[in-house]
Design a protein around this nucleic acid. Structure first.
Length: 224
DNA sequence: TCGAAGATGATG
DNA sequence: ATCATCTTCGAG
C-alpha cells in the first residue's frame, strides 16, 4: 500500500507516471490558490491533477497546458465584452468553473481566478492521461491537446458551469506532489486570439512541452 | 504531411 | 457576424 509520505517523483520522468488509485482522496486546492494573480495560478496549475467524479466513475488527468485570460482590458478575455449572463461567473468568486460552448460543438473549461469582482480565468488547454484512461487513449501519447478535446475526454459540458472546484464533489483539482521545474515551463502566445490586437501577443499560454521522443526509424523495405 | 474549408450554435 | 476549435478531405 502506497504511503502518503513516500518520496515524490522528481520532475523529469514523472510525466509517464500514473497517478495513484487514491487521487480523489486528496484535498482540493483551496480557494486561496485561485484567489491570486492569474499568471501565477496558471503556471502553478501545470502538473496538478484534475478530477471529474461522475455517478459511474472518476476521470483524472494531469494538466500540462493552460492559458490565462485576465480582466476587462484583455481583449481576448470574454469579460472584455462586459458582464453578461455568460461571463457572469468570471466576475464571481475564484475557485469556480467557467464552461462555455465554442464553435457550436466544443466545450472549454476555465477556472476562475483573482478576487471576486475581477474577471479572470485559466483555460485548460492540454492534459495528460494518468488514470485508467491511459490504455484506451490509443496511440503513443497520453497527451490530449486542445480545450475542446480536453472537455470531450473529461465529459465536461455546461452543466458543470459555475460549480465550486474547492470542494471534492464533481470537479476539482489536487496537488499530487509532482514538482515542476519552472525552467521547463514554456511561455507562448495564446491560440486563436489574433483579433485581440496587442493582447494577442502576450505570452500567456504556459505548458510543459510534449516529450520529444525520437521517432522510430522509418520502416525500411528490405533491399534486394 | 499539410493547408483549406466546413461544421455548428450560443453569444451580443 | 463572430468565435479561447477540430475534423475531414484533397493535393502533393
Amino acid at each position: 500500500m502506497q504511503s502518503a509520505s513516500s518520496p515524490r517523483s522528481p520532475d523529469q520522468s514523472a510525466f509517464s507516471l500514473i497517478d495513484g488509485p487514491q487521487v480523489d482522496q486528496l484535498e482540493p486546492l483551496p480557494r486561496e490558490f485561485y484567489c491570486r494573480a492569474t499568471l501565477d495560478v496558471a503556471r502553478e496549475l501545470l502538473g496538478k491533477t484534475l478530477i471529474h467524479r461522475m455517478p459511474d466513475g472518476v476521470i483524472h488527468v494531469r494538466i500540462v497546458d493552460v492559458e490565462a485570460y485576465i480582466g476587462s482590458e484583455d481583449r481576448a478575455c470574454h469579460a472584455s465584452r462586459g458582464r453578461t449572463r455568460r461571463t457572469e461567473v468570471m466576475f464571481g468568486p475564484p475557485g469556480h468553473t467557467y464552461v462555455y460552448l465554442i464553435y457550436g460543438m466544443y466545450h472549454c473549461l476555465n477556472l476562475v481566478t483573482e478576487p471576486e469582482g475581477f474577471p479572470a480565468a485559466v483555460l485548460i488547454r492540454g492534459i495528460e492521461c494518468t488514470g485508467s484512461d491511459v490504455d484506451e487513449n490509443r496511440g503513443t501519447s497520453n497527451r490530449i491537446d486542445g480545450p475542446g478535446r480536453v472537455c470531450r475526454h473529461m465529459e465536461i459540458d455546461r452543466s458543470l458551469n459555475g460549480i465550486d472546484v474547492t470542494v471534492a464533489q464533481r470537479l476539482w483539482v489536487v496537488d499530487h506532489g509532482l514538482m515542476i521545474d519552472p525552467q521547463r515551463i514554456e511561455a507562448l502566445p495564446r491560440v486563436g486570439v489574433d483579433y485581440a490586437g496587442e493582447w494577442a501577443k502576450k505570452l500567456w499560454r504556459f505548458r510543459i512541452p510534449p516529450a520529444t521522443i525520437e521517432r522510430p526509424a522509418r520502416k525500411v523495405v528490405p533491399s534486394r
